[in-house]
Simulated assay, not measured.
Amino acid sequence: MTDQPEPWEPGSGPVAAGSGDLRRYAPATERNRDAILGVLREELPSSGLVLEVASGSGEHAIHFAAALPDLDWQPSDPDPAALASIEAWRQEAGLANLRAPIRLDAAAPWPVDRADAILCINMVHISPWIATLGLLRGAGACLPPEGLLYLYGPYLRDDVEIAPSNLAFHASLKARDPQWGLRRVEDVIAAADAQGLRFDRLVEMPANNLSLLFRRRD
């Protein structure tokens, strides 16, 4: 598997059949992965298990596992096609610290009960609010004291004017599914607090995206 697979966007449905290549290729991953990695290098523990919720194509997991070999990486997704893509990328990469993907629906009971850190990239806006609530509930149950929950994506903020591109994106998401859409940072913080997660900080990211960092309270 050396050729680049057809481009695919999260929330866009399955990849067109034809080549037999199970890998998904999300162009946004190449644009944001190094900026995200820069934040993760500062915030993740030096060792331990990192659970990625909603891994999508699996490309982030490959990139982060290769860059941070002292951490064990557990990708997950509820979509069988995504799990197949993650596994195909994993087999190609051959990384010893990257585990086989597991099926995990953020809104349902989780098949894992502990993780030293949890990542979730570009899920919150492309899923019903119940998925975000499940993510926060699961993180509150799995993380150790001061364990990191890292969220990345576009958000709305009460004190910041929404960028025109994000406004158009929000409208397009709502048109595709009324349960989707950009979430208010303030709503996510309040919901996280109810699950024992302390808001740590916000990091401005390229292309009007944000990193939201939470820590499990003692």
Rank of each mutant, 00 (worst) to 15 (best):
P101D: 09
A108L: 12
H60P: 06
P128E: 03
G56D: 10
S165Q: 14
W129P: 06
L149M: 13
Y150L: 04
I118D: 06
R90T: 02
N122G: 04
P109S: 12
W129M: 14
L44P: 10
P75D: 11
T132I: 07
P109M: 02
S127L: 03
D79W: 03
S57L: 06
P75W: 04
L149F: 05
L133W: 00
V53K: 02
W110I: 03
V112Y: 08
D159I: 11
L104I: 02
A67W: 10
L149T: 07
W73K: 04
L148Q: 07
R114V: 07
A96Y: 01
S47C: 14
L149V: 02
D105N: 15
A115E: 08
P164F: 11
S165Y: 05
G134S: 11
G48E: 02
S55N: 09
A96F: 03
S127R: 10
R157C: 14
A61H: 03
L95I: 09
R103M: 11
D77Y: 11
E146M: 09
E87N: 12
C120E: 08
A96W: 00
L119W: 05
R137F: 00
P145F: 02
Q74R: 11
P164S: 01
L95H: 05
A96E: 12
W89C: 14
R114S: 15
P101T: 09
I121D: 03
L95A: 03
N122R: 04
L156D: 01
R103T: 14
S76G: 05
I118G: 04
I126D: 09
L95G: 03
L156R: 15
V112T: 12
A131W: 05
A61I: 10
E43R: 12
I121R: 00
A93D: 12
L149G: 08
E92W: 06
E87D: 15
A54K: 00
S47A: 15
G147F: 11
V50K: 06
P109A: 10
L156C: 03
D70A: 15
D79Y: 02
A171S: 15
D70W: 06
A88E: 08
I130P: 00
A115D: 07
L71S: 05
F64A: 07
C120G: 05
A61Q: 11
L148P: 04
H125R: 12
A141T: 12
L49A: 08
Y152N: 04
V53W: 03
A107I: 00
A100C: 07
R157F: 00
D116P: 03
Y155L: 13
L133P: 00
A168S: 15
D105G: 04
P109W: 03
W89Y: 14
L148D: 07
L98A: 06
L148V: 14
L149I: 14
W129I: 09
R103C: 15
R137M: 06
P78H: 13
L136G: 05
L95N: 08
I62G: 06
L167T: 07
P45S: 12
V53E: 04
H170F: 05
N122T: 07
S57H: 09
D79Q: 14
A163F: 11
P69E: 05
V124D: 07
A82P: 01
I162R: 11
I121M: 10
L83R: 13
A93H: 03
